[in-house]
Design a protein around this nucleic acid. Structure first.
Length: 688
DNA sequence: AAATGAAACGTTTTT
DNA sequence: CGTTTCATTT
């Protein structure tokens, strides 16, 4: 019985009556156990597993809790519980009602946004003002969608940035066209998952959950909050910690947790105070610092551990890389098991130096975040092909693939895609596999720029027979798409290889088989040949054979990793979706954990080293202008510190010799009482 | 419209 | 430092 393992305060929360319950759970107080206990209690009270919805911040967290439940109950019961992130759950629901949706990577839709943005003329209206960049506007729009529920984008922009009044209409218009374009292509992004689900709940669809549980409630944003309102469960069980709210940049609305008991008349508030994780000295350090923030709920942490603790230590260094090297050395000397160690930092930029230093000492480490992995061109290319094969409507994927063909850029690639669609009666799928050869001209007549007079309109199509000598596949041979004047022998072969692969993968349902088919194909080999060559280019434009070999090996390694990722996946669509929704959740190998503070959320380690505690870097003062606050930075510090179970080191360097920067110690080191120098402290405090 | 070469830039965090 | 964006050429 899991409930018997809970302490009194946890048990009280876990067995709370149906209704609106909020649990204020400080770091290390057994939040996860309480949620698991709560679900156990529900199941014991004859609530059916499919009547329970568990919303977590990461899919990993959801999987962990479900796995814990499956040991308590049966696997069969545990797997029936709806559990996942807001986004994952919404995706599931949407897909059920509209199977045609295509979830795309955020950067992908940014490209679409930019293409719309770039057609606008700002300067003609106001010479004296500079408009926001497409990038900034996209991010701002995304933030708007997560936080604003009433106003339209233009009005919201006007309220927030009145100096941009003259552009607000254009901004709004861009956003509207962006929405239209997404609709037209069937694309959706992360925000749309929530927005469209909300719309769905507004009309036809009802979901019926006896209880909805929300983990990490402090990081819920207004949009997610409104989604909860729409679901309107008869019983709501939210768990969070005000002091660990670190997602303001994503619209996390700290007021949701603060106003919970005002919003619901029947609300019960539970507080978990007993900390099992950390030593008293670590906790008192965390507590000293977080006390500088305003309190919403009173909070005293109770230290449960009575073992004799090691004092958290300050590490001071003259130079940035000396810090990384010394900390690495310290880890080597101090550590029995590298997996128990975490190195935590505010900015990802700290990771490279640290990783290099660890590697130098032969210490293995793992970094969270597949960002660089999924951004690699060879990975993108593979997944673009994958995406198109699974979903031939995906025009952007098609364009990206064909940009690799010599002489074909995005414009021609689009022509080809539209052409194939026409050849297949509206579906590129048939346009490739069974083109309608009776169509003489598959291309739209377009207005070309006659002023440049560079190219003719596509009135005079080339003859398909000019590729007869290439020995093309029968489906490609007669395909009128080859009439496009941009096709050369080389790009015709590219198309040919593409079609052959398409035919081959057409019936494949297994992700692993799919990845293998793609990576073994001629066309993929052609692409990685291009990539490795360009990576091995020297200044005099000759190819460094050694570098090229290395580049190919790197690519191969990534392909192997992709193959590994297909493990546990049996469905193409789901695999692809998981790659997008959980692209940052993979971490590989074992060894020291290198983590940003954000990534460390919810984790715990015996030994924790916090790096680069310099004013400007942590706290990151650049962010103040962008909606960040020193309070939020302080919460980040609090989260980082409370990851530590046994030992804690706080480290900073006085200078970056490479970038020629001098640093002051972080304000938080003073607040923690680790540094005493009143002049500096007063100065730093004033700056906030 | 695409390829090539030059310059700039950028480092906050996540689904 | 490596990638991304910009400008120039074909």
């Amino acid at each position: 019985m899991p409930l018997s393992l809970l302490n009194e305060e946890q048990l009280g929360a876990a067995t709370a009556r149906f209704g609106h319950n909020i649990v204020i759970a400080s770091a290390g107080t057994g939040k996860t156990s309480t949620i698991v206990g709560r679900i156990a209690h529900l199941l014991n009270s004859n609530v059916a597993p499919e009547e329970i919805l568990l919303l977590t911040f990461t899919n990993k967290a959801a999987a962990e809790m479900i796995s814990r439940l499956s040991t308590l109950f049966s696997q069969k019961i545990a797997s029936k519980i709806e559990a996942g992130t807001f986004h994952a759950i919404c995706y599931k629901l949407l897909k059920r009602h509209n199977p045609a949706i295509l979830l795309k990577q955020p950067t992908e839709l940014k490209t679409l946004f930019r293409s719309i943005y770039e057609k606008r003329e700002f300067k003609k209206l106001h010479y004296e003002m500079t408009e926001y960049s497409a990038n900034f506007l996209y991010d701002t729009y995304s933030f708007y969608q997560n936080t604003e529920l009433e106003l339209c984008f233009g009005d919201w922009m006007y309220n927030n940035r009145p100096d941009h009044e003259c552009f607000c209409d254009i901004y709004e218009d861009i956003a509207k066209e962006y929405e239209r374009m997404k609709d037209r292509y069937g694309y959706i992004n992360f925000n749309d998952l929530l927005i469209k689900t909300k719309e769905l709940l507004n009309k036809e669809i009802f979901v019926n959950f006896k209880e909805v549980l929300v983990d990490e409630y402090q990081d819920t944003n207004s949009l997610q909050g409104s989604l909860l309102d729409k679901i309107e469960p008869s019983s709501l069980f939210c768990v969070g910690d005000y002091d660990q709210s670190i997602y303001a940049f994503n619209g996390a609305n700290i007021n949701l947790i603060g106003s919970f008991s005002k919003k619901f008349a029947d609300a019960s508030v539970f507080t978990l105070k007993k900390n099992y994780r950390s030593t008293g000295l670590i906790l008192s350090l965390a507590d000293r610092v977080i006390k500088f923030n305003d309190r919403i709920y009173p909070k005293e942490l109770e230290v449960v551990r009575k073992d004799k603790p090691e004092r958290p230590a300050l590490l001071e260094f003259d130079e940035l890389f000396e810090q990384y090297r010394s900390v690495s050395l310290k880890i080597k000397r101090n550590t029995i098991n590298y997996d128990d160690v975490a190195v935590i930092f505010r900015n990802n930029s700290s990771a490279d130096g640290m990783e290099a230093s660890l590697r130098e000492l032969g210490i293995s480490c793992k970094r969270k975040g597949g960002k660089s992995f999924f951004d690699a061109k060879e990975v993108k290319a593979l997944f673009d092909m994958y995406a198109f094969f699974v979903n031939p409507k995906d025009m952007m994927a098609f364009i990206h693939i064909f940009e690799y063909a010599k002489g074909i850029g995005s414009a021609t690639a689009k022509d080809i895609f539209e052409g194939l669609k026409r050849m297949g009666q509206g579906s590129a799928y048939w346009g490739i596999l069974k083109p309608d050869t009776s169509i003489k001209n598959p291309f739209e007549k377009r207005k070309v720029n006659y002023q440049l007079a560079l190219f003719d309109d596509f009135v005079d199509l080339e003859c398909v027979s000019k590729f007869a000598h290439l020995g093309l596949d029968e489906t490609v041979l007669e395909n009128p798409i080859l009439k496009h004047p941009k096709f050369t022998d080389e790009s015709a072969i590219f198309l040919n290889d593409f079609c052959i692969l398409y035919k081959k993968v057409n019936k494949i349902k297994e992700p692993l088989a799919m990845v293998e088919a793609i990576s073994d194909s001629n066309i993929y080999k052609y692409i990685i040949e291009m990539l490795s060559t360009s990576r091995a280019l020297k200044k005099d434009r000759s190819v460094d054979a050694d570098l090229k070999k290395k580049a190919l090996l790197n690519i191969e390694r990534r392909v192997i990793l992709i193959k590994k990722l297909t493990k546990n996946h049996t469905d193409n669509q789901r695999f692809l979706n998981a790659m997008i929704l959980g692209s940052s959740e993979l971490s590989k190998g074992d060894g020291v954990n290198l983590l940003t503070v954000h990534a460390s959320k919810g984790l715990e380690f015996k030994d924790v080293y916090i790096l680069d505690l310099m004013d400007g870097r942590f706290p990151n003062r650049k962010l103040a202008s962008k909606g960040g606050s020193i309070d939020e930075e302080r919460r980040l510090f609090y989260v980082a510190v409370t990851r530590a179970k046994d030992r804690l080191w706080l480290s900073y360097a006085k200078e970056d010799r490479i970038k020629k920067l001098k640093f002051q110690p972080s304000l938080f080191l003073y607040e923690a009482g680790l540094k005493r120098n009143n002049d500096e402290y007063v100065k730093l405090s004033k700056e906030k």
